[in-house]
Design a protein around this nucleic acid. Structure first.
Lengths: 224, 224
DNA sequence: GTCTATACTAAGATAGAC
DNA sequence: GTCTATCTTAGTATAGAC
């Protein structure tokens, strides 16, 4: 995985001598997030992004020398806004997963960016291909371990293989987000995950209740 | 949905006075399928496709005046190769779904084309966007009806909603194919579908057995 | 009917002026 | 830091040869 530290620089220099640079970079990253999410990386043009950020193409290119570097910086910036598991508040793995999905509803642009790039990067010679292949692999590993732990605790439905359950969860999540992109009214990703987890997990108490999900939606949820 | 009848012309004129045209068009469609599947529609260049088909760019453009029309013709051509339900041979809906997934393994290029375009078309102003939005909607409807029928026959796990089961099936299928594109060794789409259907369906006899799937893989499967 | 040659516009990338 | 100019390649359109 090759990424720049652009996102980090924004935060690190926010009050430093290069405050204006940091502001510019942040504005560019937000504009890039929007345009990449809307059109994908390939179809997005640097001229569109520059216009959305209110600067000229050359200024954009001063801060991010290539379109690939801008993509990497945008994804790093996105990773910093991911939902992090709060150990005390969300004890179970299913609750963490659904909590992440609910939190995602609050940042639709970032989700759209992620979904569009996940999908687009399944093509040859895409600059984010390694990033997502790596991500799939580590997610499968992480989720399989979580499902295995649930199984050891007797909370898994009999006959369910942890590795398979993990791959299905990831596939379902991405696929449902894809449907959601095509038709936002047709499906709710978080509720789809609840339905799937309800099929795999034997202990209802491990899933977030409808009331809990509603509370997350109205009160917001812990986010890093 | 706007498609040309290009695919149809190929078959219709195969032995007619324009046999050479038909051959050319078929060669172009096969080259286009390969390049679109590999790189997506936007990143694919007409020059690449022409080279893959062994003709000049201008010749390609004579047969398909625009890149959009070539895409439509390619998708129509793909639709003609879809697996069709053989009423006698595959009595149950779950068997039809898994049979389709197994048949897909025999035409990885077409599946890659479909997956890549499904994903890519989730962006704004994509020429296949309407096609896939429509496809999602009709698939959800069709599968929901099938699950409802299973429910009426008492073959559905208690508490499973047909519409939700349908949306999950479609999402899972697409998402798993996406993972398969990123890492073909990590997951088998057909087996993933079996695992999911096993969670939703109460009657084991409705699912194709492992032996049945193996037989499909070795003997081939009815395909339109 | 089939194919080649050429020109036009927009994109990403680069160099250099201020 | 910001902008102008230029290069290469892409998609597209047109004229015309066989």
């Amino acid at each position: 995985m090759t990424t720049t530290d652009a996102g980090g620089q924004v935060a690190a220099r926010a009050r430093g001598p290069y405050a204006k640079t940091a502001e510019r970079r942040l504005a560019i990253l937000e504009a890039a997030t929007e345009v990449f999410a809307e059109r994908g990386w390939r179809a997005a043009s640097l001229r569109q992004i520059a216009e959305a950020a209110g600067i000229s193409l050359s200024t954009l290119q001063h801060h991010f020398p290539s379109k690939v570097e801008l993509l990497h910086a945008t994804m790093t910036h996105r990773d910093e806004h991911r939902f992090e598991r709060a150990p005390g508040a969300l004890p179970s793995f299913p609750q963490t997963v659904v909590g992440q999905a609910v939190a995602n509803e609050g940042v639709p642009r970032l989700i759209q960016l992620y979904s569009v790039l996940t999908a687009e990067s399944a093509t040859a010679e895409h600059p984010a291909r390694d990033y997502f292949a790596q991500r799939f692999a580590s997610l499968r590993e992480e989720y399989a371990a979580e499902f295995a732990a649930l199984g050891a605790a007797g909370a898994l439905r009999p006959g369910v293989d942890p590795a398979t359950a993990a791959a299905l969860l990831i596939g379902l999540w991405d696929g449902v987000q894809l449907q959601w992109l095509h038709d936002p009214d047709a499906i709710e990703p978080a509720e789809a995950l609840v339905a799937y987890l309800g099929l795999v997990i034997d202990d209802e108490a491990l899933l977030p209740s409808a009331a809990q999900r509603a509370r997350w939606r109205s009160d917001g949820i812990v986010s890093a």
